[in-house]
């Protein structure tokens, strides 16, 4: 167990080293950092002075070490465009993304698992067939098209919900939340449904497949033979045993939600970190791009580490097999 986790840790450190090297090289190869700091009319002497102040004359490895040191402390410098510290900007926009991902994850898990269990148990009913066909179409629909369709239907046509933006936020210290006002909830409904749909279909299909598998096993047949109620068999025996793969899915699910939040946030102009990244790419705002790169990599590395360890804890077969 210890060795296993150590191996995974080493792998995580390696990934972070590669990603940080890429973001470091962004600073050096994209544009001239000095030009981004001073105006057009700066003299040659001023430029040289800033060059030395920034330490751009040092050997490349020294610069990289300094970059790593700053990165560990969360310091990515000033945004070229907004002229404010990048870590501040990210922290400011993080609640919007996290709340969106949170609501979507709940929708995807609750609806996905219930529909998965239903279609797994009532395999032949026509409702199951309809659900499965719809989920197949869902896989082929790109996220942004689902978003546009929902906006057109509920915001433009029916005028029930706002089409974009995040309104009605309440401040809890530095954290701005959508959860404490009606307007906040109205604004988060469409983006979170859009974001959850793809993951929902994945979870549905996985849970269904697992249920079908478990229902064929001997201990379910034995439970039937003992005359247990159908309800007890389905939920106490079958569903429980499908939950191991679901844990991995929750991990992948959160990762996938963060990935697709870039798209959803752009469609709905949701002021989160994903939208900030896309805007940063448009304006070649290198500090934000570099920070987002490192931030996302760190998130994925952490999620994977936690999932690996959980897997180990939950399923004794893996522990014994190692």
């Amino acid at each position: 167990m210890f060795f296993f986790i150590l191996k995974r840790l080493a792998q995580s450190v390696l990934v972070m080293a590669v990603v940080s090297a890429v973001s470091f090289s962004l600073f050096n190869f994209v544009g001239d950092p000095v030009n981004n700091m001073v105006g057009q009319d700066a003299t040659r002497e001023q430029r040289i002075e800033i060059r030395q102040q920034l330490g751009l004359d040092d050997p490349i490895l020294t610069q990289y070490a300094r970059f790593l040191g700053n990165m560990v402390q969360g310091d990515f410098g000033l945004s070229y465009r907004i002229k404010r510290p990048v870590d501040e900007l990210i922290l400011e926009r993080l609640p919007a993304t996290l709340e969106l991902v949170f609501v979507s994850a709940i929708i995807a898990l609750v609806v996905g698992i219930s529909l998965g269990v239903y279609t797994g148990i009532r395999r032949k009913s026509w409702i199951s067939r309809v659900i499965l066909s719809v989920s197949l179409v869902g896989v082929s629909l790109p996220t942004f098209i689902i978003g546009i369709a929902l906006i057109y239907l509920f915001a433009v046509h029916l005028r029930w919900l706002p089409s974009s933006g995040r309104s009605g936020t309440v401040e809890l210290g530095w954290w701005k939340t959508s959860f404490l006002s009606v307007d906040g909830w109205r604004a988060i409904i469409l983006p979170s449904i859009t974001l959850s749909l793809f993951q929902l279909t994945l979870i549905l299909r996985l849970v269904r497949a697992e249920m079908l598998e478990v229902m064929r096993t001997d201990f379910i047949k034995f439970a039937r033979a003992r005359g247990l109620a159908e309800r007890a068999i389905n939920f106490r025996h079958a569903l429980r045993n499908t939950l191991v793969p679901v844990i991995t899915i929750i991990g992948l699910n959160i990762g996938g939600l963060i990935a697709f939040s870039v798209i959803t946030e752009t469609v709905f102009q949701w002021p989160g970190t994903g939208l900030m990244f896309i805007q940063a790419v448009d304006f070649v705002d290198v500090p934000i791009m570099a920070a987002y790169l490192v931030f996302v990599a760190l998130l994925f590395v952490l999620i994977n580490l936690v999932v690996d360890i959980l897997y180990f804890v939950v399923d004794p077969r893996i522990r014994l097999g190692d």
Partner: peptide, 14 residues
């Protein structure tokens, strides 16, 4: 472990 679309956006942006 990283979703493809995110990686494509990142590589494309870089």
């Amino acid at each position: 472990t990283i979703p493809g679309i995110l990686l494509a956006i990142l590589i494309n942006g870089v």
